[in-house]
Amino acid sequence: MSSSGLSRRTLLTAGAVGAASAALTAAPQPAEARTYSGEMPWSPSSADAPVPVEPGPYEFFTPDEAAFIEAAVSRLIPNDDLGPGAKEAAVPHFLDRQMLGEYGRAERWYMLGPWRPGTATQGYQSRMTPAQLYRFAIKAIDDHLKQANGKVFAQLSADQQDKVLTDLEHGKIELANVSGKAFFDVLLQNTIEGFFSDPIHGGNRDMVGWKLIGFPGARYDYRPYVDKHNQKLDLPPVSIQGRPGWNPKT
């Protein structure tokens, strides 16, 4: 390698330091351009492990929003003779933390112009992030219901709630400045995610979603089971963080 490679690296490092100090308070820091030659660039203790969501009070949803969400997810995946529902699986908690995070802020999405309604096949073209969609839509739905019969969603009977959700799903409820159908689609999708994704994200409490469908979870090695054709396995589910009783007591 020529000596210019070295000065190039030095230059890059200098550039990176300059950028970092100029933007000390800005988050997240952009990755810096890097040059690798003559080595496998691996460093220990740098695994991109997920940060577990801890239990706790709502941080995104207001009390009114939380009441709506708890009621709505309880209708989408109800607690019934098949087992616990979305509320018992902590799906509202999952949704709350999702709204606070990169998904709720649509950090990975392209959210600049041009803005046009688009066709049905052109995908999401709303200016709203998921967090904004939840915030606007929940208020708009409750306002709409209050105007109609004086009660918000959480105060309705289960049958009435089902009717409202069905009407939202089919675009039969006109809301101010927000699409009820778009919200329903996202809420249903996120509820499914919260019920069946790894408990590390705050939902699927006690892995009830996985127990319901017989999914053994984030296991690493199924080789002993490949030839167990059509046999009942009864493997208890495992999360990325293991499961209660998995680790010896310290």
Partner: peptide, 12 residues
């Protein structure tokens, strides 16, 4: 670093 079997089985 990026695909370790301790966390890659994460559907979400």
């Amino acid at each position: 670093t990026d695909f370790a079997p301790t966390f890659i089985q994460d559907e979400l």
